[in-house]
Design a protein around this nucleic acid. Structure first.
Length: 612
DNA sequence: CGGCCTACG
DNA sequence: CGTA
DNA sequence: GCCG
């Protein structure tokens, strides 16, 4: 399917990341002139003695020196990746050392180099002396796992043939989620979903790999490939082994194969994981029957918990959608009413991918309808694709739309001082036209902000900022974006499709709404994890100081600009104070804040690199 | 050894 | 408990 | 299970 987003990209035309990389700045040129080129006789001696030699190219990337032939050096990137050849003059020998990690760690030069922030394609050499300041202190740290992840790109199709592996990891994650009861449903027990989290992260790592696992297996064998995987963020012994099992055998006998047969998976010690890790809470969710649970939970309005109860019912188990359809009594006892009944009836239709023509018609119809409403500056409303439509370039089984306006909020006060929500008027119109199914017939889930006009932008008020409670920040509730989750009927084919509409609540929050609603879910979690590391909250509305970054200090320093050649900018925030929107007017700016003012995460500006 | 994303109805 |  |  083609990229139906063409012509609809809202923010700006994206240039390929590579073309935006800073070309050799004066600083970099000066650095390379300080670098002595590779001493061929010395390097050859090291190679002959089978000593490991590290070299660095003029752009700062580090490599193992593998061979010298035809006056060129064959190099393997330290952080994985395919071998490449470099002219000898372009390389500088960092060190020759025995193949033991301690030796590497003890070499002060290498430690220094490793500390350098190396964004893809641009980097500083180890020889550049950074000015000593609080700013560099914050920057001169070992990158965290989340940080390393966000430097990657996550294309829809990885160039290293990992489709089967990705599918297996996704399947494992889904089985874990459906058996354990879905993490978002249980915010008190996030930790108990560690397995699902592991698989989601492993999948993201695989999608972001810059080297081929199968090629590595062929050329270096299992042991060295395992080490390379373990050097990737979030992959340890356990998950690296599972990844290799899947690549080598097509499956993982301990987990995936057993899940697929409806059996409980085995843990690392070989024992059956009969229950999800909830025994300490008295819960007894079983890890058996995963495929049946997955099938039932895929029905709209049927959660993983309900699916689990149906499948695990000892007296009268329901093990498939077909069985549930044949049991109106059990259906009635679920209490879902007409919406669940409708979802079940049209379930197969709703799983079908939305054709590009229909996705575009949905966007056009929504935008035309909102502009035809009798509301202030109706013509300024804009609809764009978010979700999979934006990261993949084509729709999946649903279409996600974001509505925004450059001046207007998502609601306004009428003559009587009552709030009027754009989404309500829009949906009335779309239902009247027969495009959106009404709540009397089908799933039709609408959420509008309750407080927008009572306490406008509560997160900007002093009162709000003072409202810290024992368990997190209860009143960190933002005026949320109005939302609609429902069913669309195609005017062209009369087929039904899931549609999500989000109305950006305030114009300045648009970049946050775009970033959050574009996803992916895993990438959102990575970005939010990164924000936490910086003492910040990242939500769909703003970046806010958590207020506990440094003990004893009530403020949080945020580096919003640290690119070479620009004046560094650091912002000081009070506890729970949002970062002023003037610093975050685009997704790129948000990503830059998460990268401490650098362009380290610039790969992710392109939405099609966000398929994590 | 504590934390694991965040937000809403 | 449900939705993203 | 992995990370800081």
């Amino acid at each position: 399917m083609g990229a139906f987003l063409k012509g609809y990209s809202a923010e700006k035309k994206y240039t390929p990341a590579a073309s935006r990389m800073p070309s050799r700045s004066p600083v970099l040129s000066a650095a390379s002139s300080l670098v002595a080129s590779l001493d061929v006789s010395e390097a050859t001696k090291q190679l002959r003695k089978e000593k490991t030699t590290i070299v660095q190219c003029a752009r700062g990337a580090l490599y193992y020196l593998r061979d010298i032939k035809d006056s060129e050096a064959v190099c393997e990137p330290l952080d994985g990746g395919d071998e490449s050849t470099h002219t000898l003059a372009s390389l500088w020998q960092v060190t020759g050392y025995d193949s033991d990690e301690d030796g590497l760690a003890r070499d002060p030069r290498v430690t220094n180099i490793k500390r350098q922030r190396t964004s893809a394609g641009s980097s500083c050499s180890a020889l550049i002396l950074q000015p000593s300041s609080a700013l560099t202190a914050a920057i001169d740290k070992e990158p965290t796992a989340a940080e390393r992840m966000l430097r990657k790109a996550f294309p829809l199709v990885s160039p290293h043939g990992t489709a089967h592996l990705e599918k297996a990891l996704r399947e494992l994650e889904k089985y874990e989620l459906v058996c354990q009861g879905d993490d978002y449903a249980d915010p008190e027990c996030l930790a108990t979903n560690s397995e699902a989290l592991q698989y989601a992260r492993a999948n993201a790592v695989v999608k972001g790999l810059t080297w081929s696992i199968s090629a590595s297996l062929a050329s270096r064998g299992r042991g060295r490939t395992l080490e390379r995987l373990k050097a990737e963020p979030f992959l340890g012994e356990s998950n690296a082994r599972k990844v290799l099992d899947i690549v080598e055998t097509g499956t993982c006998g301990r987990t995936l194969s057993r899940f697929q047969r409806g059996e409980a998976p085995l843990d690392s010690s070989g024992s059956r994981r009969v229950h999800a890790h909830r025994s300490e809470l008295g819960a007894t969710r079983r890890m058996t029957g995963a495929p049946a649970k997955l099938e039932l939970a895929s029905v709209l309005c049927l959660s993983a918990i309900r699916a689990g109860e149906l499948v695990d019912d000892t007296r009268d188990p329901i093990r498939s959608i077909a069985e549930l359809r044949a049991r109106p009594d059990r259906l009635a006892s679920l209490g879902g009413g007409v919406r669940l009944q409708h979802s079940l009836a049209v379930h197969e239709d709703l799983q079908e991918p939305v054709p590009a023509d229909d996705a575009i018609a949905m966007l056009r119809t929504v935008q035309e309808a909102v502009r035809a409403l009798s509301i202030p500056h109706a013509n300024g409303w804009h609809a764009e694709f978010v979700g999979g439509g934006r990261t993949r370039g084509f729709a999946g089984h649903d279409v996600d739309l974001l509505l925004s306006h450059a001046e207007e909020m998502a609601s306004f006060l009428d003559g009587n001082g009552q709030p009027v929500f754009v989404i309500n008027l829009l949906l009335e119109e779309l239902v009247r036209r027969g495009r959106v199914l009404p709540k009397t017939e089908a799933y039709h889930n609408k959420k509008t902000a309750r407080y927008r006009h009572e306490t406008p932008r509560p997160y900007l008020s002093d009162l709000h900022m003072a409202n810290e409670t024992s368990k997190g920040y209860e009143n960190l509730h933002h005026d949320h974006h109005d939302k609609f989750f429902g069913i669309w009927r195609s005017a062209r084919t009369s087929k039904l499709h899931r549609i999500d509409i989000v109305v950006c609540s305030h114009p300045e929050e648009l970049p946050f709404a775009r970033l959050g609603w574009t996803g992916t879910r895993t990438l959102n979690r990575m970005m939010r994890l990164r924000a936490i590391e910086l003492g910040l909250y990242l939500g769909a509305h703003s970046i806010t100081a958590r207020g506990s970054q440094t003990p004893g200090s009530t403020t949080t320093q945020v580096v919003v600009e640290a690119r070479p050649g620009r004046t560094p900018v650091t912002v000081t925030l009070q506890k729970l104070e949002p970062l002023p929107f003037e610093y975050v007017r685009s997704e790129e700016a948000i990503l830059r804040v998460l990268a401490c003012g650098t362009d380290d995460f610039i790969n992710l500006v392109e939405p099609t690199n966000r398929n994590a």
